[in-house]
């Protein structure tokens, strides 16, 4: 029982890894077709895995499959896209696809925050910087990936081991009680509140110290980012003509 399960898990990761390897940008012969085929096989394997082993009993809905697939496909496209702008936009898609899954888990506030903060604020900044720095199409280093086989091997072996470990020890799953509705904590607190209120209460109670440090970290990041980007440094790279950030590279940054 566990044997075929382990084979299925590791097999999914191997096939998926191969698919990603074929999809990564190279300047040689295009292997995107093979990559897509392998990727589809891995996705099917993952569905069998989730549907067959874990979800049969509890009957997960199609929503999970749909959005999980979108998230994974978008993630793969993100790391394989030759255009950084597309990568950023695919990442927005990953975030947007993960959001319904969070809703499924009754994490409404987090889902909203994710969309607003991540997809909204952070990613826009990325796109802005990419636009500034790369106006002349994809460059050579975007079209060739660095030791893709090693990268796929290292990344997928580690995570396959982690995932496999989760699966081959099913008795460890619910160690601290059974799965309950997140908002059943309402019953514990005795107050009829929704997810957002609950998050607010816990955050301002148990996690108030962390919240303070978070504020400090944001201050540090703000000051740090300003200090770093306005630092006056000599420009010493090749091909500085026509740069968007000022002619000599010694000017103050654009923002």
């Amino acid at each position: 029982m566990t044997d075929w399960l382990a084979i299925l898990i590791y097999g999914t990761f191997v096939v998926g890894g191969l698919g990603l390897y074929f999809l990564l940008p190279t300047t040689g012969r295009s292997t995107k077709m093979a990559g897509a085929l392998f990727g589809m096989a891995a996705l099917a394997g993952a569905m069998v895995l989730c549907g067959g082993r874990f979800l049969a009993a509890s009957g997960v809905n199609a929503v999970f499959f749909l959005f999980a697939s979108v998230a994974i496909v978008a993630a793969v496209l993100m790391v394989t896209s030759e255009k950084p702008v597309y990568s950023a936009l695919y990442f927005v898609l990953v975030v947007l696809a993960v959001t319904p899954l969070l809703l499924l888990q009754q994490a409404e506030f987090l889902a909203i925050a994710l969309v607003i903060v991540y997809a909204g604020a952070i990613l826009v900044t990325y796109v802005f910087v990419i636009m500034l720095s790369q106006q002349s199409g994809p460059s050579i280093y975007d079209r060739r990936s660095r030791s893709p086989l090693l990268a796929v091997f290292a990344g997928f072996v580690s995570m396959a081991v982690v995932a496999g470990q989760m699966a081959v020890l099913p008795q460890d799953w619910a160690i601290r009680g059974t799965l309950v509705s997140a908002n059943s904590a309402v019953a514990v607190t005795g107050v009829g509140v929704g997810n957002i209120e609950l998050v607010g209460r816990v955050m301002m109670g148990k996690y108030v110290v962390a919240l303070e440090i978070a504020g400090l970290l944001l201050l540090v990041a703000m000051i740090g980012a300003i200090a770093v980007s306005r630092k006056r440094v000599p420009a010493d790279g090749p091909g500085l003509e026509g740069l968007p950030l000022g002619q000599s590279g010694r000017e103050a940054p654009p923002f």
Partner: peptide, 16 residues
């Protein structure tokens, strides 16, 4: 890469 390969090796060593 050396970090992640090292991590993979450690994971394999520990869990297998």
């Amino acid at each position: 890469a050396s970090m992640v390969v090292g991590l993979a090796l450690l994971l394999v060593i520990v869990l297998f």
